Amino acid sequence: MAAAAAALRSGVNSKLCLFAHLVIFAWYVFTLNVNCSITSSGQHPGVRTYGGRWKYLTFINLVMQTVFFGLCVVTDLVHTALPRKSSNPSLLVTLQDFFFTVLAFPVGTFVFTSFWSIYSYDRELVFPKVLDDIIPTWLNHAMHTVILPLLLVQMCLQHHKHPSRSRGILALALFASLYLAWVLWVRHASGIWVYPIMAHLSPAGLVVFLSVASLSMAPLYLLGEKLNRVIWGSTGNQKKKKK
Protein backbone atom coordinates (compact mmCIF):
# COMPACT_ATOMS: atom_id res chain seq x y z
CA MET A 1 0.00 0.00 0.00
CA ALA A 2 2.76 2.42 0.92
CA ALA A 3 4.60 1.69 -2.34
CA ALA A 4 1.43 2.34 -4.33
CA ALA A 5 0.86 5.61 -2.50
CA ALA A 6 4.44 6.67 -3.17
CA ALA A 7 4.06 5.84 -6.85
CA LEU A 8 0.95 8.02 -7.06
CA ARG A 9 2.59 10.78 -5.09
CA SER A 10 5.76 11.08 -7.15
CA GLY A 11 6.54 10.42 -10.77
CA VAL A 12 10.30 10.22 -10.16
CA ASN A 13 12.71 8.50 -7.80
CA SER A 14 12.40 9.89 -4.27
CA LYS A 15 16.10 10.78 -4.13
CA LEU A 16 15.88 12.63 -7.44
CA CYS A 17 12.80 14.42 -6.13
CA LEU A 18 14.71 15.47 -3.01
CA PHE A 19 17.63 16.68 -5.14
CA ALA A 20 15.31 18.75 -7.34
CA HIS A 21 13.66 20.29 -4.30
CA LEU A 22 17.03 21.12 -2.74
CA VAL A 23 18.19 22.85 -5.94
CA ILE A 24 14.97 24.87 -6.29
CA PHE A 25 14.95 25.78 -2.60
CA ALA A 26 18.60 26.92 -2.80
CA TRP A 27 17.73 29.01 -5.87
CA TYR A 28 14.90 30.76 -4.03
CA VAL A 29 17.01 31.35 -0.91
CA PHE A 30 19.71 32.90 -3.10
CA THR A 31 17.19 35.03 -5.02
CA LEU A 32 15.48 36.17 -1.83
CA ASN A 33 18.84 37.07 -0.28
CA VAL A 34 19.88 39.15 -3.31
CA ASN A 35 16.49 40.86 -3.37
CA CYS A 36 16.71 41.74 0.31
CA SER A 37 20.29 42.98 -0.12
CA ILE A 38 19.22 45.35 -2.90
CA THR A 39 16.17 46.63 -1.09
CA SER A 40 18.03 46.97 2.21
CA SER A 41 20.56 49.24 0.49
CA GLY A 42 17.84 51.87 0.16
CA GLN A 43 18.30 52.20 -3.60
CA HIS A 44 14.83 50.89 -4.43
CA PRO A 45 12.50 53.92 -4.13
CA GLY A 46 9.49 51.86 -3.03
CA VAL A 47 11.30 50.28 -0.10
CA ARG A 48 11.81 53.65 1.56
CA THR A 49 8.05 54.24 1.69
CA TYR A 50 5.33 52.86 3.96
CA GLY A 51 5.21 49.05 4.09
CA GLY A 52 8.66 48.57 2.61
CA ARG A 53 9.15 45.55 0.37
CA TRP A 54 6.20 43.78 2.06
CA LYS A 55 3.67 45.83 0.11
CA TYR A 56 4.68 44.17 -3.15
CA LEU A 57 2.98 40.92 -4.14
CA THR A 58 6.13 39.93 -6.02
CA PHE A 59 8.12 39.91 -2.78
CA ILE A 60 5.35 38.16 -0.83
CA ASN A 61 5.22 35.52 -3.56
CA LEU A 62 9.01 35.14 -3.48
CA VAL A 63 8.85 34.44 0.25
CA MET A 64 5.91 32.10 -0.31
CA GLN A 65 7.74 30.06 -2.95
CA THR A 66 10.84 29.85 -0.72
CA VAL A 67 8.77 28.58 2.21
CA PHE A 68 6.91 26.09 0.02
CA PHE A 69 10.02 24.50 -1.46
CA GLY A 70 11.59 24.49 1.99
CA LEU A 71 8.55 22.52 3.13
CA CYS A 72 9.07 20.14 0.18
CA VAL A 73 12.66 19.49 1.31
CA VAL A 74 11.57 18.86 4.90
CA THR A 75 8.79 16.51 3.75
CA ASP A 76 11.18 14.57 1.51
CA LEU A 77 13.75 14.23 4.30
CA VAL A 78 11.19 13.11 6.86
CA HIS A 79 9.68 10.53 4.53
CA THR A 80 13.15 9.26 3.60
CA ALA A 81 14.25 8.92 7.22
CA LEU A 82 10.89 7.66 8.48
CA PRO A 83 9.21 5.69 5.69
CA ARG A 84 5.48 5.37 6.30
CA LYS A 85 3.81 2.01 6.53
CA SER A 86 0.39 3.42 5.75
CA SER A 87 -1.03 4.71 2.47
CA ASN A 88 -2.68 7.62 4.32
CA PRO A 89 -0.91 10.94 3.66
CA SER A 90 1.06 12.48 6.50
CA LEU A 91 0.32 15.91 7.94
CA LEU A 92 3.31 17.29 6.04
CA VAL A 93 2.01 15.96 2.72
CA THR A 94 -1.46 17.34 3.42
CA LEU A 95 0.03 20.75 4.26
CA GLN A 96 2.25 20.63 1.17
CA ASP A 97 -0.71 19.80 -1.07
CA PHE A 98 -2.84 22.61 0.35
CA PHE A 99 0.01 25.13 0.16
CA PHE A 100 0.78 24.29 -3.46
CA THR A 101 -2.75 24.07 -4.85
CA VAL A 102 -4.28 27.02 -2.98
CA LEU A 103 -1.41 29.50 -2.75
CA ALA A 104 1.91 28.67 -4.44
CA PHE A 105 0.56 27.79 -7.89
CA PRO A 106 -2.28 30.34 -8.35
CA VAL A 107 -0.43 33.26 -6.73
CA GLY A 108 2.83 32.49 -8.53
CA THR A 109 1.01 32.17 -11.85
CA PHE A 110 -0.84 35.43 -11.18
CA VAL A 111 2.43 37.27 -10.53
CA PHE A 112 3.82 35.93 -13.83
CA THR A 113 0.76 36.71 -15.98
CA SER A 114 -0.18 40.07 -14.47
CA PHE A 115 3.37 41.45 -14.47
CA TRP A 116 4.21 40.53 -18.06
CA SER A 117 0.78 41.52 -19.36
CA ILE A 118 1.11 45.04 -17.96
CA TYR A 119 4.84 45.21 -18.80
CA SER A 120 4.17 44.37 -22.46
CA TYR A 121 1.56 47.16 -22.61
CA ASP A 122 3.55 49.85 -20.78
CA ARG A 123 6.40 48.90 -18.49
CA GLU A 124 6.27 52.25 -16.71
CA LEU A 125 2.95 51.15 -15.17
CA VAL A 126 4.51 48.25 -13.29
CA PHE A 127 8.34 48.30 -13.58
CA PRO A 128 9.65 51.79 -14.42
CA LYS A 129 12.83 51.90 -16.47
CA VAL A 130 14.67 53.57 -13.59
CA LEU A 131 14.58 50.20 -11.80
CA ASP A 132 16.85 48.68 -14.47
CA ASP A 133 19.79 50.41 -12.78
CA ILE A 134 18.78 48.95 -9.41
CA ILE A 135 17.39 45.48 -10.13
CA PRO A 136 19.50 43.33 -12.51
CA THR A 137 17.69 41.77 -15.47
CA TRP A 138 18.32 38.25 -14.18
CA LEU A 139 16.73 39.13 -10.83
CA ASN A 140 13.70 40.61 -12.56
CA HIS A 141 13.24 37.33 -14.43
CA ALA A 142 13.90 35.33 -11.28
CA MET A 143 11.02 37.13 -9.56
CA HIS A 144 8.60 37.34 -12.47
CA THR A 145 9.46 34.65 -15.03
CA VAL A 146 11.26 31.63 -13.58
CA ILE A 147 8.55 31.13 -10.97
CA LEU A 148 6.14 29.60 -13.50
CA PRO A 149 8.52 26.99 -14.99
CA LEU A 150 9.53 25.93 -11.48
CA LEU A 151 5.89 25.53 -10.46
CA LEU A 152 5.31 23.37 -13.55
CA VAL A 153 8.38 21.29 -12.64
CA GLN A 154 6.92 20.75 -9.19
CA MET A 155 3.56 19.79 -10.68
CA CYS A 156 5.32 17.11 -12.75
CA LEU A 157 7.47 15.92 -9.85
CA GLN A 158 4.64 15.21 -7.43
CA HIS A 159 0.91 14.69 -7.54
CA HIS A 160 -0.92 17.19 -5.32
CA LYS A 161 -4.38 16.47 -4.02
CA HIS A 162 -6.66 19.52 -4.30
CA PRO A 163 -9.09 20.35 -1.51
CA SER A 164 -12.76 20.65 -2.41
CA ARG A 165 -13.21 23.39 -5.00
CA SER A 166 -15.28 25.60 -2.69
CA ARG A 167 -12.74 25.30 0.13
CA GLY A 168 -9.76 25.93 -2.13
CA ILE A 169 -11.23 28.97 -3.88
CA LEU A 170 -12.50 30.36 -0.57
CA ALA A 171 -9.02 30.12 0.97
CA LEU A 172 -7.48 31.76 -2.09
CA ALA A 173 -10.15 34.49 -2.01
CA LEU A 174 -9.27 35.14 1.62
CA PHE A 175 -5.63 35.62 0.68
CA ALA A 176 -6.57 37.95 -2.21
CA SER A 177 -8.91 39.94 0.06
CA LEU A 178 -6.25 40.36 2.73
CA TYR A 179 -3.71 41.56 0.18
CA LEU A 180 -6.23 43.96 -1.38
CA ALA A 181 -7.04 45.33 2.08
CA TRP A 182 -3.30 45.76 2.68
CA VAL A 183 -2.90 47.69 -0.62
CA LEU A 184 -5.80 49.98 0.28
CA TRP A 185 -4.44 50.49 3.78
CA VAL A 186 -1.04 51.50 2.37
CA ARG A 187 -2.84 54.06 0.23
CA HIS A 188 -4.83 55.32 3.20
CA ALA A 189 -1.86 55.49 5.58
CA SER A 190 0.74 56.92 3.20
CA GLY A 191 -1.14 58.45 0.27
CA ILE A 192 0.76 56.30 -2.26
CA TRP A 193 -0.33 53.46 -4.50
CA VAL A 194 1.70 50.28 -4.38
CA TYR A 195 1.84 50.03 -8.18
CA PRO A 196 2.22 52.96 -10.63
CA ILE A 197 -0.69 51.77 -12.78
CA MET A 198 -3.14 52.52 -9.95
CA ALA A 199 -2.21 56.20 -9.94
CA HIS A 200 -3.21 56.47 -13.63
CA LEU A 201 -6.72 55.06 -13.17
CA SER A 202 -9.95 56.90 -12.45
CA PRO A 203 -11.96 55.75 -9.38
CA ALA A 204 -14.20 53.65 -11.63
CA GLY A 205 -11.20 52.26 -13.51
CA LEU A 206 -9.51 51.42 -10.23
CA VAL A 207 -12.55 49.46 -9.05
CA VAL A 208 -12.62 47.52 -12.33
CA PHE A 209 -8.87 46.87 -12.22
CA LEU A 210 -8.85 45.62 -8.63
CA SER A 211 -11.98 43.54 -9.19
CA VAL A 212 -10.58 41.86 -12.31
CA ALA A 213 -7.24 41.24 -10.59
CA SER A 214 -8.93 39.64 -7.57
CA LEU A 215 -11.42 37.57 -9.57
CA SER A 216 -8.70 36.26 -11.88
CA MET A 217 -7.35 34.19 -9.00
CA ALA A 218 -10.22 31.67 -9.26
CA PRO A 219 -9.53 30.73 -12.93
CA LEU A 220 -5.87 30.21 -12.03
CA TYR A 221 -6.91 27.84 -9.25
CA LEU A 222 -9.04 25.94 -11.78
CA LEU A 223 -6.09 25.93 -14.20
CA GLY A 224 -4.05 24.17 -11.52
CA GLU A 225 -6.79 21.55 -11.19
CA LYS A 226 -6.87 21.04 -14.96
CA LEU A 227 -3.11 20.71 -15.34
CA ASN A 228 -3.00 18.30 -12.43
CA ARG A 229 -5.55 16.06 -14.17
CA VAL A 230 -3.73 16.30 -17.52
CA ILE A 231 -0.38 15.33 -15.97
CA TRP A 232 -1.55 12.72 -13.47
CA GLY A 233 -4.88 11.58 -14.88
CA SER A 234 -8.25 11.51 -13.14
CA THR A 235 -8.32 10.02 -9.65
CA GLY A 236 -10.99 9.58 -7.07
CA ASN A 237 -9.47 12.51 -5.21
CA GLN A 238 -10.41 14.94 -7.98
CA LYS A 239 -14.14 14.29 -8.22
CA LYS A 240 -15.47 16.35 -5.33
CA LYS A 241 -14.79 19.81 -6.68
CA LYS A 242 -18.17 21.47 -7.00
CA LYS A 243 -19.24 21.17 -3.37
Rank of each mutant, 00 (worst) to 15 (best):
L157P: 04
P163M: 00
L174K: 05
Y179T: 05
L172M: 12
P163T: 07
R187M: 00
V186S: 01
G168D: 08
M155Q: 01
L180H: 08
K161C: 07
L184A: 04
S164R: 12
S190I: 02
R167K: 12
M155A: 08
Q154K: 13
A189P: 11
F175R: 03
I169C: 13
A173Y: 05
R165M: 11
G191Q: 03
R187F: 01
L172Y: 11
A189K: 06
L157V: 02
I169V: 12
F175L: 08
R167Y: 04
V183P: 12
C156L: 06
H159G: 03
S177N: 14
V153I: 10
H159K: 15
H188K: 14
S164I: 12
A171Q: 12
H162C: 02
H162V: 11
R165S: 11
H159V: 04
K161N: 12
G191V: 11
Y179W: 13
L152M: 09
A176K: 06
L172T: 03
H188Q: 08
V186L: 05
S166L: 11
M155T: 07
K161V: 15
H188V: 01
H162L: 02
L184I: 06
L157Q: 09
A189Q: 13
Q154C: 11
A189H: 13
M155V: 02
H160C: 08
S164Y: 07
V183Y: 09
R187W: 03
H160K: 13
W185S: 02
L157F: 07
A171W: 12
K161Q: 07
G168S: 02
L174F: 00
R187Q: 04
L180K: 06
I192F: 06
V183K: 07
L178V: 09
S177M: 15
W182S: 10
A176Y: 13
A181S: 09
H162F: 02
Q154N: 12
H159E: 04
Y179P: 09
A171G: 10
P163G: 02
G191T: 10
A181K: 01
M155I: 00
P163V: 00
G191E: 03
R187S: 01
L178Q: 09
Y179F: 14
A171V: 06
A171L: 07
V183N: 15
S164C: 07
A189V: 10
I169Q: 12
K161M: 05
H162M: 07
M155F: 00
L172F: 03
L178I: 10
S166K: 14
F175K: 04
H160D: 08
M155R: 14
G191S: 07
L178D: 14
H160G: 03
F175N: 06
P163A: 00
A171S: 05
K161F: 14
A173N: 03
R187E: 01
L180S: 14
H188S: 07
I169N: 08
V186N: 04
F175Q: 06
V183L: 13
I169G: 02
S164V: 06
S166T: 15
S164N: 10
